[in-house]
Simulated assay, not measured.
Amino acid sequence: MKRAALIYNPIKADPDELKKLVKQAEQANGWDETLWFETTEEEPGGSQAEDALKQKADLIIAAGGDGTVRVIAEVMRGTGIPLALLPSGTGNLLARNLDLTLDDVEHALDTAFTGTDRPIDMGVIEIRDGDAGTRRHGYLVMAGLGLDAKMLANTDEDLKAKAGWLAYVKAIGAALRDENQLHLRYRLDGRSIRSVRAHTIMIGNCGSLPANILLLPEASVDDGEFDIVLLRPEGFVGWLQIMVKIFWENGVLRRTTAGQKLMGLTKEVRALNYLKGKELVLKLSRPEEVELDGDSFGRATAIRTWVDPKSLLVRIPAEAAPA
């Protein structure tokens, strides 16, 4: 009999109710009794995933937010063991980008025990902060420096737990008032070094953010490439151009055939630059905040990030599998 392991964040998921539903699902589908692991602040999921793999789990179910999913996936990368998602956080970014159920636990568990496996890319990043050494991490959705990283660094975690995405409003305001730009030199896929000033740079494995915001319209979780965006606004007009591109063109026009034809008549704007590549190396003129999948990872003076293609198996509904 196959056996699953469920790793849950007790702040995000109710274990008592969850155990009842898991027992029903495992029995209905002929699986052995599920292994249970609880995360803690000191051990947010990585060691639990390692223990589950040592105990020969055939499937690992992650019940928590984006941070929990990222930490577990970091350990599971390249193992060939599938990861199932039980979205329980504020953003649930990977689940959104895979069109998975966000608020139906029974359907998510049915997918876990009866679904099919989809191989997706993962990002790997090395973060250097001066003499502090180099840290390596994996990520699933996006890595960012600039506005989004400063916003996350300024976010009140207690308010976030109570108010969800509303907690970011105050933090966004503080980040927008910061007029310091990123001064960076980068090399993409081994090509020539470029120098640029930007307000924000985001490296994406996925393209969608909460509130149906399509930041990287051509991003795909399994194409073996990153989609990268540089935000370079100059004053109010620059921010307005970015808003029009992201919310109107990406969010509305791109979703219909008629809208896509209209997009052909619009011009690219200097405030928003898109790039594609498999490996990005960049150096910063001073330490800057960096974020991965919505969590702050301190400061970086340089990063190197690359795609590990189709290195993680994610469980999706059987009916959603490609023909």
Rank of each mutant, 00 (worst) to 15 (best):
L140S: 06
M151W: 05
M142K: 02
G133Q: 06
T155G: 06
N154L: 02
D148R: 01
L145V: 14
A163H: 15
L145N: 09
K162S: 12
L147T: 13
K150T: 13
T155V: 15
A143V: 08
A149G: 08
A163D: 15
M142V: 15
A143G: 13
D156P: 00
A161N: 11
K150G: 05
L140R: 06
D158F: 01
V141H: 13
M151R: 08
Y139M: 07
K162L: 11
M151Q: 10
D156V: 02
M142L: 11
D156Y: 04
T134N: 00
L152H: 00
A163T: 15
T134C: 01
R135Y: 08
H137A: 12
R135N: 14
G146A: 14
A153N: 12
A153L: 07
L147Q: 07
D131E: 15
L140Y: 04
G133W: 08
T155S: 05
E157Y: 00
G138S: 14
G146P: 10
M151V: 15
A163W: 12
H137C: 07
A149R: 02
G144M: 09
L145G: 08
L140V: 10
M142S: 10
D148K: 02
N154A: 15
Y139G: 02
E157L: 06
L147S: 09
A149C: 08
D156M: 01
A163N: 13
G138Y: 10
A132C: 08
G138A: 12
A163L: 14
L147V: 15
L140K: 06
V141M: 11
A149Q: 02
T134W: 00
L159P: 00
T155K: 02
R135F: 09
E157D: 06
L159K: 13
L152M: 08
M151F: 07
A132T: 12
K160R: 15
D158M: 05
G144N: 10
K160G: 03
A161L: 04
G144C: 10
A143Y: 01
G138N: 07
K162V: 12
G133C: 07
N154S: 11
K160N: 06
L140D: 03
A132Y: 09
D148N: 09
R135I: 13
A143Q: 05
A143T: 10
T134K: 07
T134F: 00
L145S: 13
K150V: 11
N154E: 10
L140Q: 05
G138R: 03
K150Q: 14
R135S: 14
G144E: 09
E157N: 05
N154G: 04
R135L: 14
G144V: 04
